[in-house]
């Protein structure tokens, strides 16, 4: 890796974005009659602090001594494939979680069946060995954790889950 890269500039950039958002968001807040500092005070202080910090961080990064540009050999091909598969796993995982929450929010399925489905399907995506034994185990775990613990919460601790 190079001593300086795009990545090093990201914290400062993020700081700047948040700083500006804070100052903009606090622009129209009313002053307070009883307080020397109203609701707008703190967002402004923090916004300015963020901008100053972003500037200081930029200076720091700019002054970093560029380390010798190592010719980083590209990661071995095999690794890329593994990464790609994991990346795919991540995408599927995020999609499944999103779907799970959406189904529960919209009330298409009540909480317990949706949870059992979620546990089983994400487990299936993440598992490496898809043998009959793993499938069975996944199903059992999904039932015990998804249905079992929800029922305990529902019946003993009186939590009311959506759609229940």
């Amino acid at each position: 890796m190079d001593g300086k890269s795009i990545k090093d500039a990201l914290p400062a950039l993020l700081g700047l974005v948040f700083g500006i958002a804070l100052i903009a968001g606090a622009w129209n807040l009313p002053p307070s009659r009883f307080e020397p500092m109203g609701p707008a005070g703190m967002p402004r202080i923090v916004g300015i602090a963020l901008i100053v910090l972003a500037a200081l961080e930029t200076i720091r990064v700019a002054r970093l001594q560029p380390t010798k540009p190592i010719e980083t050999p590209d990661e071995p091909l095999q690794d890329t494939r593994v990464t790609a598969r994991k990346g795919l796993g991540l995408i599927v995982f995020v999609v499944l979680t999103f779907g799970y929450l959406a189904i529960v929010s919209l009330g298409w399925l009540s909480f317990i069946p949706a949870s059992v489905l979620f546990l089983f399907s994400t487990g299936l995506v993440l598992t490496k060995t898809r043998s009959a034994k793993t499938l069975l185990l996944l199903a059992v775990v999904a039932l015990v954790i998804g249905a079992g613990s929800s029922r305990v919460l529902q019946d003993v601790l009186l939590v009311r889950f959506p759609g229940a």
Binding site: S115, L119, L124, V125, L126, T127, T134, V141, A142, V159
Partner: peptide, 20 residues
Amino acid sequence: IPKSFLLPSVVFFCVVGVYS
């Protein structure tokens, strides 16, 4: 415990914890 069992359960418990 393999991640395929652990990670979905962790997400589930987070959902339960926040919702309840």
